[in-house]
Write a protein that binds this DNA or RNA. Structure first.
Lengths: 369, 369
DNA sequence: GCTTGTACTTGAAACGCATCAAAGGGGCCG
DNA sequence: CGGCCCCTTTGATGCGTTTCAAGTACAAGC
């Protein structure tokens, strides 16, 4: 099992070491018959180039690293899918690491990728990346996804404030008088959603708004608890519109309301954020504001490419992409899955319309349902 | 943006190059104050070890590569999840590459990982790995997942033949008289399922069996087409049990039957294979035979570890794990998702009972539903 | 004061490859 | 036949580490 190296191939083929190297990296420089001879020797000997050595000798390879917080979240997968396709389009490899919701691990993989002579690295960070000052003076281009970071950093993110605004406007359009926002704004993203809601409602002082903390983890159970509490209120104190800061929360709320005999959306409308089809387990159709993960992954790679090709800081350092309003049923959720995950280009086509370097817009994907 | 290297740290800290290296790799060899000094210098300078160089100089690093055909398939994610947890348990990193259903890309990433001085590589191959003879004499341990390969190779796979047997026995237990198997046996896995069905039914010559090809890609649409055809048959030529070789096919069949006014499971029972919750879009509860992806990923890493630690071919080279029979509804599918993907240890606990070095068993996860 | 031992530290060698200046070979022209 | 140029091949050099034999400093024991 002794590894065969380039010098073995050279000796065996009766050429020099540099020629074999050329056969691998600059085949056009070789005479066809030499190339053929070398290639045959390579496959006869089962030679595999040592990537570490070639990276060491030759500088960065054409590959990107992507650190995700989890793999089982549809949104992260959309990011991965978009990043993958865009990377391949430019001839780059994409390697993915699963940080498993663990700060330490996230940092670990990030450093790993940095040190592997990757051409660029992307993260969908769990916390704000500002905690680590070294991040900003990294030796390789790095782009943050789905999160806003301080000035020197690059990011591609959905405009969470706009999401809040969109959902508030939705509530207004549906004639809401009393809105309850459910969830703990544990992350920046959620805080911004709340902010967006407040800003949009500032113009409508007649609409009553309440924000209810849902417990540390924003679980479906937390949502259920609050839903139950809402259900038990006298009818005139009950909201007519509930916003879950995440779809998981919203789904909990819906379950509770339905269980307590309150009609959704008859008596109370419920909307969520995330566009997370897996959260919708009931048969009640629900509305969600969905950030375009595929597009975020794609733009992330584009940002990387720009830095690489121009050898200079890109002109555009921050990209905010719009979100889509969707009405989702349990059945339609499957369709979304197929369209976004199995055939992501469908989403791509739709959401590029909503992409913008400056601000977010809402588009309607209703045609898909 | 000039990268700071180990010699810079050494110079800056006033120690030698080897000492800095020791600080990184064998901290116990250093005097505490030296270690502290070096660590401070490292973070002051923002030094990041060059992974390529350390791999080159030091041999394999503690990391595994995993090549998956797609990321958006729940089963692959279960594999990734199981592999990740097991790898971390041993202190190894796991890097994932998405082959995007592309042979060439699969091969590409495989070679990439091989050449990166990974400690081991796993693949969930699209085709039988026998096509590439070089595979068998690879310089690093390699384990195939979810597929059987010829003698010299290592693999962990669900026993697909057993899956067929299980589903046939299910049909028998439900009193089936006429079974239709839907799908093109394009892959080894599917072929084995059909084989298992036939073997189980060999003991029941009174049961009529039909195998219907579903078109090249085994899509839901293919399933729908066949379902429609079945629906239009006169009642006495209609099967009372349909097996989809994949869940996607089965779901297509169900849609067609329901659309044509045939009751499922009243007039026709339908079962699938894969345990793929995303395929179940309807509200009709359906039965599927589910291979334990999480367990497969886990065992794959264990097989790798065994080869690494013993520095010799592992005693056990093939592991077949059992599958579970589940009854799935659209709502329950969500629960499965949560349990298997978000909290995979639940599945782990359940399926280890079914794991065996020798043959497959069926276990019932009904308690989860 | 000398020896022996212990606890750290040093720096040269090697890891496998890409690069590139230089050498080699062959054809063409004068 | 000599000179020139172009196409192809060569091999020494260095990439940033780890490793390890050799070195240093210091303490304890005699």
């Amino acid at each position: 099992m002794a590894k065969v190296k380039i010098s073995d191939v050279a000796r065996e083929a009766g050429v020099s070491l540099g020629t074999v190297s050329n056969a691998l990296n600059h085949p056009e420089k070789l005479r066809p018959e030499t190339l053929k001879l070398i290639n045959e020797t390579i496959s006869r000997l089962g030679y595999l180039p040592n990537q570490s050595a070639r990276q060491l000798a030759g500088g960065a390879t054409k590959s990107f690293g992507l650190v995700l917080p989890r793999l089982d979240h549809g949104f992260s997968l959309q990011i991965a899918s978009g990043a993958h396709n865009e990377a391949r389009k430019h001839g780059y490899d994409l390697l993915i690491a699963n940080a498993d919701n663990d700060d330490i691990l996230e940092d670990h993989y990030l450093r790993y990728f940095m040190g592997t002579q990757m051409s660029g690295v992307m993260v969908q960070p769990m916390a704000s990346p500002d905690w680590h000052p070294a991040m900003t003076k990294m030796p390789v281009p790095i782009v943050h996804l789905d999160i806003h970071c301080s000035e020197p950093g690059y990011y591609v993110a959905a405009d969470n404030e706009a999401q809040g605004r969109i959902i508030a406007e939705l509530a207004i359009a549906r004639g809401a008088h009393h809105i309850v926002v459910v969830g703990r704004a544990a992350f920046m993203q959620l805080t911004l959603r709340v902010l967006g809601i407040h800003k949009a409602l500032a113009l409508h002082p007649d609409i009553k708004i309440e924000v209810i903390d849902a417990g540390e983890w924003n679980t479906a159970a937390d949502g259920y608890g609050i839903g139950a509490q809402i259900a038990e209120r006298p009818a005139d104190e009950r909201p007519d519109f509930v916003v879950g800061l995440t779809d998981v929360l919203a789904s909990g709320v819906v379950s509770a309301l339905v269980d307590k005999g309150i009609s959704v959306p008859g008596q109370v409308r419920v909307a969520g954020c995330d566009g997370n089809p897996l959260a919708w387990s009931g048969s009640v159709p629900l509305t969600t504001v969905a950030p375009p993960g595929y597009e975020i992954g794609r733009k992330g790679v584009q940002l990387l490419m720009e830095q690489i090709e121009n050898k200079a800081p890109a002109k555009i350092k921050h990209i905010r992409v719009g979100s889509a309003v969707r009405t989702v049923t349990a059945v339609a959720a499957e369709d979304i899955n197929r369209q976004e995950l199995v055939r992501p280009f469908l989403l791509e086509r739709a959401s590029t319309q909503a992409s913008s370097q400056t601000d977010a817009t809402a588009i309607n994907l209703g045609a898909y349902l």
